[in-house]
Design a protein around this nucleic acid. Structure first.
Lengths: 340, 340
DNA sequence: TTTCAATTTGTAAGCGCTTACAAATTGACC
DNA sequence: GGTCAATTTGTAAGCGCTTACAAATTGAAA
């Protein structure tokens, strides 16, 4: 029964080409195992019918998808864009397809997305940061789907990861700030709950203060979600409550840009009246006026290496190693010495 | 044979729960068609085994995935971020999962991604702009996968779409520029090849010039890919070749921001020495100094409505209609009257 | 207690593909 | 031409799930 109604199947191709379905399958998957004349016939039939293999069936039969999934906290600002782009490029080069979804920084949505991607046959997963329910890691292990953590690195986690040390990077940055004479700092942190990177960064700020023998009261801390608008609001709140602040350390560039905008709106000179720093060194950092002093993160390198490592894990040539990348401090216009 | 080795299947669950596989399936898909006591047994077995349905098999059997795919030209800058975010939120609200991939503005990659998504069982696709090979549309039709075009609207295409009129919006913006006395305009357009939105925008610029009875030589046009850096380079080239330009119209905000940065570097006052305009009104536009005059695009509305419409198409409650949204001009600091 | 319609459950046939294994073909060599 | 190993192709058994249909169960009404 020639199956006229719908999408062509391997059987249709086999019938048209006058061969068996096995041969059709082989033509598509290991062409060298089939003699040229036959292959031509089959390919002609494939073209004629506009046949595309059904993915579900293929996955089920072959137990393999060449798809990698990535769940990032947000697509709305550019924090992850560069790294993911590089990740995708490298995957593509190696014959894998990337599917991305975003969790809006919400653990329950992240879990949902992880399950969705696994269910859809992702061969491996890229996850941002360590902090998630152990049951999720168990689930992934049970499903035999390797996962690589990125944007974070912790020597004492056995979870494979590729990233940098958020804590010490931030600490180094704040050290620079302190070196310039600042003794009263505002901190606009991202929400730390469920976000180990934000936790680490905040801890880094505290480390620097402590190692300079300054009291904890040196810091005025606000937590707020990573959005420009929130950066502006937090900055405003911070400055009006603490007139003596000479510098504001932000948990990332997005918050810092908001702070910067608000400073301008309040008629404050940056860095004359107040210095502002960011973290991540996204494109934005060099576009705003004044340009943002921030921590440079090797986004592209991280993305590329993550792809390579994750594929190794998927193909079982690596058990999953952890790699620490260097970050560096980008001194730009928004940080200056404490004035007068 | 108790299948100890690997991931649990529906058979395992059925065996443990002491029911048939059909019942297990029903518990998961239409729980109300199964009596509570049985359901409890099954759910307990599911939990005990940590069972998750195999997606491939499910798709194959049910011919449905509740997955929507979107292929956007780039994730690297924020042009599509807001709209896609809204798109995803609405999809999620309605029980669909979004999978995104990006094409780097390359038609062959886009085709690959479309096929990948269809193959992975996407129930419907969101595509950016109209301009792609007819064979791709044919393919989608053959696979019975509805596609909705976004970020563009053309009354005379039969392809369902949701977007705005890039051409007339741009024309209106340029009209404003001309009203301010500018008579020699630089244009930094995106690459028009394979990008109907860029074509339309450029055409809009020309429309405005023509309808003011100005000669085509009024415009000095450069095409370059949408990247900040390219905007800067193009601006520099434009200004050094044409000393008399008083305004530069950019194909989008990303290019405009690059132009702005370059102007600053060249010591040019904006808008004192030269006015600069963008298009899209992404977040960036309000962050740079001076703030960018641009065309506001209803990103979130577009995303949300796209989700609603695409789902209707998938569920066959709509044949796929086209919707035109309004855009509006955002006059901000970067545009001023021609000086002296 | 019967009867019978409504509800719940089970049986088994696919969904479209891959692949182990068997069968058929090829052609180098005697 | 006949042998035999190597190559090519075909047969058929799944992969894990859904669902049409049939069988079994339930319980209200007679």
């Amino acid at each position: 029964m020639p199956n006229t109604r719908s999408v062509p199947t391997v059987d249709d191709v086999a019938r048209i080409a006058g061969v068996s379905t096995a041969t059709v399958s082989r033509c598509l998957n290991s062409p060298d195992r089939v003699v040229e004349k036959t292959r031509d016939k089959v390919m002609k039939a494939v073209k004629k019918l506009g046949y595309t293999p059904n993915f579900g069936a293929r996955v089920m039969a072959a137990q393999r998808t060449f798809t990698i999934g990535a769940i990032i906290p947000t697509m709305e600002n550019a924090i992850f864009a560069r790294g993911i782009q590089a990740f995708q490029e490298e995957l593509r080069r190696r014959g894998y397809t990337l599917l991305v979804s975003s969790s809006a920084y919400q653990p329950d949505i992240e879990e949902e997305q992880i399950r969705a991607l696994v269910a859809r046959g992702a061969d491996g997963l890229l996850l941002i940061g360590y902090d998630r329910d152990q049951s999720l890691y168990d689930y992934l292990k049970r499903q035999d789907v390797p996962a690589l953590v990125a944007w974070a690195f912790s020597a004492d986690s056995e979870q494979p990861s590729i990233g940098f040390d958020n804590r010490s990077s931030m600490s180094a940055l704040v050290q620079q700030v302190l070196n310039l004479g600042h003794r009263s700092l505002g901190v606009i942190s991202g929400i730390t709950r469920g976000n180990d990177r934000a936790v680490q960064r905040l801890q880094g700020v505290k480390d620097a203060v402590a190692s300079n023998d300054l009291p904890p009261e040196t810091l005025k801390i606000i937590e707020t979600p990573y959005e420009i608008e929130n950066g502006a609001i937090a900055f405003s709140r911070l400055m009006s409550a603490n007139a003596d602040l000479t510098a504001v350390i932000c948990g990332n560039d997005v918050l810092a840009v908001g702070a910067l905008r608000q400073a301008r709106e309040m008629g404050l000179q940056v860095p004359g009246d107040v210095s502002i720093t960011g973290f991540d060194d996204i494109e934005l950092a060099r576009i705003v006026t004044p340009q943002l002093t921030t921590v440079h993160v090797p986004h592209r390198e991280m993305g590329r290496k993550a792809a390579i490592e994750l594929i190794s894990m998927v193909e079982k040539t690596s058990p999953g190693i952890s790699v620490e990348l260097d970050s560096s401090i980008q001194l730009r216009e928004s940080l200056g010495p404490v004035c007068c």
